[in-house]
Design a protein around this nucleic acid. Structure first.
Length: 105
DNA sequence: GCCATGGCTAGTA
DNA sequence: GCCATGGCTAGTA
């Protein structure tokens, strides 16, 4: 496994329950600010194998990127089970639920 | 809604 | 060539 891939796996594992990060944030925290698509690719191929909390990664707008067939419904259900609230339009407020944010705000 | 972006892997030589 | 992105613009109301 390449260094960046390892770093991404580690970053994703560090997201606590009830918190989310965007693909780009995960990439940046892993040493490659422009590697958002790699994060998507890694989640797609390695989530199962490494037991990653894949549901805690959303796009920069706070939306679930997966479609219904791809597991979008399951992702939302898992996040809601961790206390994450979805606004109208199925958006998560990253100010509130982003990794490092204060959810009590 | 369009399209540049990038690290990696599968597949070929 | 893949990919579960992201950022910017055009075009409407």
């Amino acid at each position: 496994m390449a260094p960046f891939t390892r770093a991404v796996v580690k970053t994703i594992r560090s997201i606590p329950p009830g918190r989310v990060m965007s693909y780009g944030q995960v990439a940046a925290a892993s040493g490659s600010p422009r590697g958002a698509r790699q994060v998507a690719r890694i989640l797609h191929s390695l989530s199962r194998k490494y037991g990653l909390p894949w549901h805690r990664v959303v796009n920069i707008r706070g939306e679930i990127a997966l479609d219904e067939n791809g597991g979008g419904g399951e992702q939302q259900a898992r996040l809601e089970a961790e206390g994450v609230e979805f606004g109208l339009g199925g958006r998560i407020d990253l100010k509130r639920y982003g990794h490092g944010a204060d959810a009590s705000e």
